[in-house]
């Protein structure tokens, strides 16, 4: 997965946002925060009781306002982190074409997609051959997504016109005799099309 997290306190992800300091990825900062919060509330309560005689604020108000003030402080910290995240993204993607962005994001799988789009005939039924686990890795879906509809890897066809061999050990051995290799991407990835 692409990482946008370098040096952030809040590390955003679509599953969970971690609060961390440094590389540890721990939730300790949050515990420290709660300790600090409790301390602040305690101090506020004490101050409130001291000035109670001439103030209309109740302990309840003080408690609530303190919590809201801490929330505001937390949110300011969060905005700082959001802004760093955004700046990081701008540096990474600004003034890039969508192709450049995808190459930047996915690297090798996307370069392979570009390679396959050139090497294969249009609208061909394809078959994906890979050693990757198709249930737990995204790369097979990256190929399916970007190659569609130029190469249709979605339908599990038995009579594929082209073979998309990606991250497969000894990829040449996966190519049957009635196919010819039209392009070698790297030592584990190649493209083959059916002989006419």
């Amino acid at each position: 997965m692409p990482s946008f997290a370098d040096g952030l306190i809040y590390i955003p992800s679509w599953n969970y946002i971690k609060v961390t300091i440094g590389e540890s990825g721990s939730i300790l900062p949050v515990y420290f925060f709660y300790l600090m919060l409790s301390g602040l509330i305690l101090i506020a309560m004490v101050l409130c009781s001291r000035f109670k005689k001439n103030k209309a604020l109740s302990r309840r108000d003080v408690l609530r306002n303190t919590v809201l003030a801490v929330l505001a402080a937390m949110v300011l910290l969060q905005i700082g982190s959001q802004q760093s995240f955004l700046t990081h993204r701008v540096q990474r993607f600004f003034h890039q074409t969508v192709d450049e962005k995808y190459t930047n994001l996915w690297g090798s799988p996307y370069r392979y997609v570009r390679f396959a789009l050139v090497q294969t005939p249009q609208n061909c039924a394809g078959k994906l051959i890979t050693d990757l686990n198709v249930q737990t890795t995204l790369e097979p879906y990256i190929l399916k997504y970007f190659l569609y509809p130029h190469v249709d890897l979605l339908a599990e066809t038995v009579s594929a016109e082209c073979l998309i061999v990606f991250r497969k050990n000894n990829p040449e051995q996966s190519v049957p005799d009635n196919y010819r290799i039209v392009g070698q991407f790297d030592e584990q990835s190649l493209i083959a099309v059916k002989r006419k």
Binding site: Y10, I11, P12, Y16, I17, K18, V19, I27, V30, Y31, F33, Y34, L37, L63, R64, V67, L68, V70, L71, M74, V75, Q78
Partner: peptide, 18 residues
Amino acid sequence: NMFLSGNWSILWFVLLVF
């Protein structure tokens, strides 16, 4: 998830206090 993640800031805690 509610109290110790960065997902919700401290909003669940604020709700509890309120």
